[in-house]
């Protein structure tokens, strides 16, 4: 129970998985969207979630950083229980908004619709969270933000506003912004679904670089080919349940479940 009791600052035991879900359930009203999800992602692992729309893939991602509140189960990131702390009697308490914000800073998230802040320039978007949460500013921060921007290949766009960028460029800025707090984990929620086909490649390239640098990542994607080459593990989800999981070769190459085969035959 120590990990449950630990507060935000406590370091977990080495070797613990970066992300762990145990029996996670989520309801939207009457709609039971996650039906007992168990999932473990090791450090540096890349996990791709595939499956039809409405299967609950995005909800898993959004539950991990508490954009959605789960009704049952436990979620741990880096050994810490997300959203709750247990007291000495083992009773659960909600974390405060401040504590939740602190937990989220270990997790970077990239959205389907980018969600850049339109009234700020590219560099301001990237610098915002270190500025506000780590009280950093000045040339050191600027250098770091510019390095991130260079990483996603957009150094020359530092002073542009999001509306002046293409969708693919905006998504790469969003990735740089998510990396600005040095997260331990990155969540990608259909990062290329809103993009014109010719812009998808640049974004996937950036994600691939990130995977190769050893970042732990969960990616919800419809790009089956991409999932196959980048992921260490592929999960196929349908109707709120992980129907099949394994290496890309197992799940995409030689699916055992009929549902998986049906889905893959439609999208491949």
């Amino acid at each position: 129970m120590t990990s449950v009791m630990s507060t935000v600052e406590t370091k977990p035991a080495a070797g613990a998985p970066m992300v762990e879900l145990r029996g996670v359930h989520k309801f939207f009203g009457e709609n039971h969207v996650l039906k007992g999800i168990d999932l473990s992602v090791g450090r540096g692992q890349v996990v791709a979630l595939i499956g039809p729309s409405g299967s609950g893939k995005s909800t898993i991602l959004r539950s991990i950083n508490m954009l959605e509140q789960i009704e049952a189960g436990e979620i741990y990131v880096d050994g810490q229980r997300m959203g709750y702390r247990a007291d000495a009697q083992g009773e659960l308490h909600d974390l405060t908004e401040k504590q939740i914000a602190a937990q989220r800073r270990h997790i970077g998230m990239v959205f389907q619709r980018f969600n850049l802040f339109p009234h700020m320039t590219v560099i301001e978007n990237i610098e915002l969270s270190p500025k506000l949460t780590q009280r950093r500013h000045g040339p050191a921060l600027r250098t770091e933000a510019m390095e991130l921007l260079a990483k996603v290949g957009l150094s020359e766009k530092a002073d542009a506003y999001p509306a002046q960028l293409s969708g693919g460029q905006q998504q790469r800025v969003a990735i740089a912004r998510a990396l600005a707090l040095n997260p331990d984990l990155m969540l990608f929620d259909e990062p290329t679904s809103a993009l014109d086909p010719e812009l998808v490649g640049d974004v996937l390239h950036v994600i691939r670089d990130l995977a190769e640098s050893g970042m732990t990542m969960l990616i919800v994607t419809h790009e089956i080919g991409f999932a196959r080459t980048i992921a260490d593990q592929v999960l196929f989800m349908d109707q709120g349940i992980i129907q099949e999981q394994g290496t890309p070769d197992e799940v995409i190459g030689h699916p055992k479940e009929q549902r998986t085969r049906d889905f893959l035959s439609k999208v491949l």
Partner: peptide
């Protein structure tokens, strides 16, 4: 809604998010 979600995901405190993200827009 995505603006507040982005601010949340970045771990910005609520008040800062209101002040820096939502209000100016």
């Amino acid at each position: 809604k995505g603006q507040m979600e982005a601010a949340d995901a970045l771990g910005l405190p609520r008040r800062q998010a209101m002040w820096r993200i939502i209000l100016p827009q």
